[in-house]
Amino acid sequence: MSDVCASHVPAAARTAQAAPILPLSVRDLALRFDGATVLDGLSFDLSATGCTMVMGPNGAGKSLLLKLLHGLIRPTAGTIAWGSHDPSAVTARHALVFQKPVLLRRSVAANIDFVLKARGKDARRRDRLLDHVGLGHKARQPARLLSGGEAQRLALARALATDPEVLFLDEPTASLDPASVLAIEAIVAEARNRGVRIVFVTHDTGQARRMADDVLFLQGGRVAEHSRAADFFPAPRSQAARDYLDGRIVV
C-alpha cells in the first residue's frame, strides 16, 4: 500500500495537485480476497458535480467500492482514474465518513482540533464546524460517549474539516432519528451545492430519492445499473433494482 498522500507530497510535485480529479473513470475494477471475488468487473464514470447515491443489498460491495475509490485498498485488477491520478495519490483531496466511524479518545472539540491541526487548517473553524452539525453544545464531552447519531455527525464534521473535493458517505444516517436524517441531508446538500462531489451509500430509498442526481446500483459485486435519478426511481432498468425497491429479497 502506497503511503503517498497528496498533502504531504513535496512542493515540486504539488503542481499536479491543482490538476482536476474529476470526472472519475472506473474500468474493469475487480477485488478478490484469497480467491473470494467480492467486486467483479465494475465499469462506470462519475461526472464532475452532483450527488451519486450508491445502493444495493448487504454485502454487495458498496463499502469496499468506496475504500477502493478513496485509495485505502488496492484493486486486484482494473483501473480507477481520478482525472489522471491514482486514488492513493489524491486521498487527501477526498474525505470518507466510515460506516462505523472511529472517534479519538478525546473530547468532541479535540477530535476536530486534531484534524484541523494535522491538515494545516485554520483552528478557529472548529466551533463553526461543530455548530454546523448541531454538536456545539457537546464540544467538551468525551467523543466516545456520544450517541450513534451524534458520533455520525461528528464524523461528518471531521470530514468537512479537511475541505474535501469529494465526500464519500457510507450510510451516515443509518442510526439517526428522522429530524437528524434531514439535518445531515441538508448539510450534505449544502456541500454539494458548494461544488463538493458527493458519493453517498444508503439503504433508505426515500433518502436516495431526495438526494440523488444519479444512482449506482450494485449487486453481488457488479454494477447492476447506473442511471440518472429521474430515470431510476420511476422505472429501474435492472431486475435487481426493481426487486430491491419493491422490498423483495435479492441474492
Binding site: A92, A95, L96, F98, P101, V102, R119
Partner: peptide, 14 residues
C-alpha cells in the same frame, strides 16, 4: 489496528 484505516483516510504522516 483500530485507528489505521481512519488515519490513512485523513492522510496523516507517520
Amino acid at each position: 489496528a483500530e485507528y489505521a484505516e481512519q488515519f490513512r483516510s485523513l492522510c496523516l504522516t507517520k
